[in-house]
């Protein structure tokens, strides 16, 4: 059984342009998050080049903040990469949800557009697709708007961050923590999710106390994930993903 999927037209320059302008107003909020990241990165001790390069190459705010938590003179690479994967695993669901439309366009466009896949442009594109007006330009152009504003915000935060001598005095050391917590509570909330979070907190705390350094993130992520594995969502619930950014 398959439901009718509307036809996805190929990518056009005009479509990309329209997508860019449609998401630009919303992207202004991304400047603020980029600013917070730039500020936090400078406090953490990343060089300016590293700070900008991370926004350029990773382009995923929450994962970048998490990387700063682990960053030091030395960095545990495996925990960092596992954490990055766990935080960005939602991209898997986002890409999968668009697959019925993406499979209609050539592979270069299909994968090319995934390069700028992010929460806001995904949510709007999926919405258009489901309303029967699939529009790849919105995904790509909107993604570019998000990327440009994310980079701009990072540069601003870096400049601004250097000017503040004692960030903790202004509460700015809490930017990361507050950002991440707001992302947790911004997602869908259900008894199931709350249980997953409690299990995550408890297992992470135990791992933090008794297991080797930096294992707590992976342990907590798997602990919470297992709740989802064994206690499934009802089939009627809408598909995939938290609203990030």
């Amino acid at each position: 059984m398959s439901t009718a999927v509307s036809v996805m037209p190929g990518l056009t320059l005009a479509g990309i342009g329209q997508g860019f302008w449609r998401l630009l107003p919303l992207s202004m909020f991304v400047v603020v998050f980029g600013l917070a990241y730039g500020l936090a990165a400078v406090q953490t001790g990343l060089t300016p080049l590293q700070t900008v390069f991370m926004s350029f190459a990773v382009f995923a705010g929450t994962a970048q903040f998490a990387a700063l938590e682990l960053w030091g003179g030395q960095i545990p690479v495996i925990p960092l990469l596992v954490t990055t994967f766990a935080i960005n695993a939602r991209h898997l669901l986002m890409g999968a949800s668009l697959y019925p439309w993406l499979k209609q366009v050539p592979a270069t466009q299909r994968f090319g557009s995934m390069l700028v896949l992010s929460d806001a442009n995904w949510a709007m594109t999926l919405n258009d697709c489901q309303r029967g007006k699939p529009n790849l330009g919105l995904l790509v152009g909107g993604g570019m708007a998000l990327w440009v504003t994310w980079m701009g915000g990072t540069l601003l935060g870096m400049t601004f961050g250097n000017l503040i001598a004692n960030p903790a005095r202004f509460g700015l050391d809490m930017v990361m923590g507050c950002f991440m917590l707001s992302m947790v509570f911004g997602g869908r909330k259900s008894l199931r999710m709350v249980l997953a979070w409690c299990v995550a907190a408890l297992t992470a705390w135990l791992a933090y106390r008794y297991l080797p350094e930096n294992t707590h993130v992976v342990v907590g992520a798997i602990g919470g994930g297992l709740v989802g594995l064994f206690w499934m969502e009802k089939p009627a619930e809408p598909k995939a993903g938290r609203a990030d950014k």
Binding site: A66, A86, R90, L93, G187, G220, G224
Partner: peptide
């Protein structure tokens, strides 16, 4: 994946 994405931040 949905349960894990919030859990990792909590952790």
């Amino acid at each position: 994946i949905n349960a894990m994405s919030g859990s990792v931040l909590i952790a």
